[in-house]
């Protein structure tokens, strides 16, 4: 499989050199993979993900996305790159006072005419695909509701629909199910799996629970204090590895 992302010695230092969030990380992601990042809170998963689309500026290192150096991209190039890497978030990050439809359509902002978008005018095919994507995530009847009227699971589905609107090559999911109950978590994860398998979207997801990581990931990358402590197949994580990643006191919790 051809490689989609190559990350080369990525480093992010916060607070004028006092906190090292990501420390000299290198890895590659192949097209079509479902890569799961695991690790404790504060281990650098979120920072790593946000460095990839430069929501956070990396301090050093290189990120190459489909042959293009993201770290050196101009503002315009960066916007074009971001269209191809969709992102969903732990807290869903919907615009709460806007309608579900507007939230979904905002996934097209990178593509549409900026002037037309200023007056909330989107092309007809975008509107159609917005409804199609809402249909796909199972909430077509919620389109005209305000986003904050929806339940947590529904909000995350709106987030997925927004990501789908971008027709991305890469989907980054920053702890997409941490704020959801186990049953809803699985249904959301299944949408990600579906995107991965049916649309061929490469997925990088950070997850809290190892059981979810084992169930959905094709490859696992474990971070601890900003460094990679494990890289390999889900099956390779045994009790010893687990203790190394999560610390001696940790015990594995199952999510079914």
């Amino acid at each position: 499989m051809e490689e989609l992302i190559r990350i080369d010695r990525l480093t992010k230092v916060y607070e004028r050199g006092e906190v090292l969030a990501v420390n000299d990380i290198s890895f590659t992601v192949k097209r079509g993979e479902f890569l799961v990042l695991i690790g404790l809170s504060g281990s650098g998963k979120s920072t790593l993900l946000r460095c990839i689309n430069r929501l956070i500026e990396p301090t050093a290192g290189q990120i190459v996305f489909d042959g293009i150096d993201v770290t050196k991209a101009s503002a315009r190039q960066l916007r074009q790159l971001r269209r191809r890497m969709a992102m969903i978030f732990q807290q869903f990050n919907l615009v709460k006072r806007s309608s579900v439809l507007t939230n979904v359509l905002s996934g097209r902002l990178g593509y549409v005419n900026p002037g037309a978008s200023a007056i909330h005018k989107f092309p007809k095919e975008d509107l159609e695909s917005a409804f199609a994507n809402l249909e796909r995530v199972g909430i077509p009847e919620q389109a005209y509701k305000r986003a904050d009227e929806l339940s947590g699971g529904q909000q995350q589905r709106v987030g997925i629909a927004r990501a789908l609107m971008q027709r991305p090559d890469l989907l980054m999911a920053d702890e997409p199910v941490s704020a959801l109950d186990p049953a809803t978590a699985h249904s959301v994860m299944q949408y990600l799996e579906q995107m991965n398998q049916e649309d061929g979207v490469t997925v990088i997801a950070s997850l809290h629970f190892l059981s979810l990581a084992r169930r959905y990931g094709t490859r696992i990358l474990a971070l601890k204090d900003g460094e990679i402590v494990f890289e390999g197949l889900p099956a390779e994580i045994d009790a010893a590895k687990f203790k190394e990643i999560y610390g001696e006191e940790a015990e594995e919790v199952e999510v079914r």
């Binding site: 929501l55 969709a86 990050n93 905002s106 996934g107 902002l109 987030g159 927004r162």
Partner: peptide, 12 residues
């Protein structure tokens, strides 16, 4: 959060 999300779609 939403600002970050909109930025991540490639909006200007």
């Amino acid at each position: 959060g939403p600002v970050e999300a909109i930025r991540s779609t490639g909006a200007n």
